[in-house]
Design a protein around this nucleic acid. Structure first.
Lengths: 227, 227
DNA sequence: ATGATTGACCTGTCTGATAGGTAAACAGGG
DNA sequence: CCCTGTTTACCTATCAGACAGGTCAATCAT
């Protein structure tokens, strides 16, 4: 006549451990009791406890170090996550493009206001490399990625950068498949330079205009592309 | 003279399992061999294997069902994650606000274009409730959250919605602490209605104007607030 | 003092045993 | 022949004990 407990033990333990951390107000780097003690505390077997710990580790709540113990990770670090069903179809691509327009548009707006001379030089040399690769006919996908990353960094907004960083992984994963390198970068190529010039000149409006041209050309490609 | 293997066994197993899934081209719902078989295949003990499975489960790669087996999850689902160090300070708040401006601004732009009559009614009743609570002097933080969620849904961009959803958790977590409910909602209150009217009228420009007013008032509060 | 050694304390991993969930095959009763 | 309850094979869930190996500090020999 045990009570109904659909929830897995490891899940309960995981929950309890999180409560324990919160109640004891453990901070980054603080050590949890050893696995031995924890099994006693919660009255569960070792394997359940270890599964709970792996779960928490995967969620970046704790860090397990061999021979040392289990330590609390920075709880003040907020993790944002999201799931996106990947279906290679026009609508998904356009949906992604909208988000990119929003995020990167803001990044460019900020970058044009805040970019430092040093960052301008960095992006300049990045673009030189871009041109070099382009003329040699080599793949420009990596350098293109770097360029956008540098611009995002110039926006000097760590949160925007973080969101954009993780989003751009999705972005690339998505766009590589259907469109490949074919033509995609050709169409957007010139706008990288005009956009950079505007950013370097701290001309917010012009930078956004160029960025939107870049996005428009992408959108056009997607819309005419047969999927 | 064993080879150096800093990497935990469970991690290797986790990797192998992912390769296995990829090579066999297993799709959503496909069943993996039983734990028994897998231990034979990889030559590891059950505990290591289970820890690997928990890890994969935490990362939403597999789903473990008691008595049934281990199943592959939708690998076509892309997860984006990011970490943001939370420091309650003016700059962080302003950084967050910039991201919100970008994402929600886009959402409102799309919502104003795409909102359906049914959704208009939903938001309308949400706002009625908002007004009711406001007049009774009760907390409006929840209903405020709902309002913005409904608007985001009206944008009909699942990816934007997903990003915004997870971001708004951060947003609220952040703003609740320093500012509390004090004044924060009072200042933005009227703009909810004007913004809604513009969206319902499919007036993109006006909706964005109202939204930016809302954001400006928030920004002003943050800037004048002593932290 | 210093450098090697030892021992206490941990995590890493394996294994055998038991409990309990799930579904398909199977056996009777209408 | 269909419905239903039971058996059975296959799984996961969880525990406990054992051994290997990492880490660190106290200790001991030089």
């Amino acid at each position: 006549m045990k009570k109904i407990q659909k929830i897995h033990l490891y899940e309960q333990v995981s929950q309890e451990l999180q409560n324990y951390i919160q109640e004891k107000e453990l901070k980054e780097g603080d050590k949890l009791p050893s696995v031995e003690r924890l099994t006693e505390m919660f009255g569960v077997g070792r394997s359940s406890l270890r599964e709970a710990l792996r779960h928490l580790e995967a969620n970046e709540i704790v860090r397990i170090e061999n021979g040392k113990g289990v330590f609390v990770r920075d709880m003040e670090t907020f993790r944002f996550t999201g799931k996106v069903k990947i279906e290679i179809e026009r609508n998904s691509l356009l949906s992604i493009l909208d988000v990119r327009r929003a995020l990167e548009g803001k990044a460019i707006e900020l970058a044009a206001q805040r970019i430092t001379p040093k960052q301008i030089k960095e992006i300049q040399s990045c673009l030189n490399e871009y041109r070099r690769l382009k003329e040699k006919g080599e793949s420009t996908s990596k350098i293109d990625f770097t360029f956008h990353q540098l611009v995002n960094k110039a926006a000097a907004n760590p949160i925007l950068e973080s969101v954009l960083d993780s989003f751009s992984v999705l972005y690339n994963k998505f766009f590589d498949k259907p469109l490949g390198n074919a033509g995609l970068f050709d169409a957007t190529y010139p706008y990288h330079f005009t956009m950079f010039d505007a950013i370097a000149a701290h001309d917010v409006a012009a930078a956004l205009v160029e960025f939107n041209k870049l996005m428009d050309s992408l959108e056009k490609i997607i819309k005419t592309y047969e999927i």
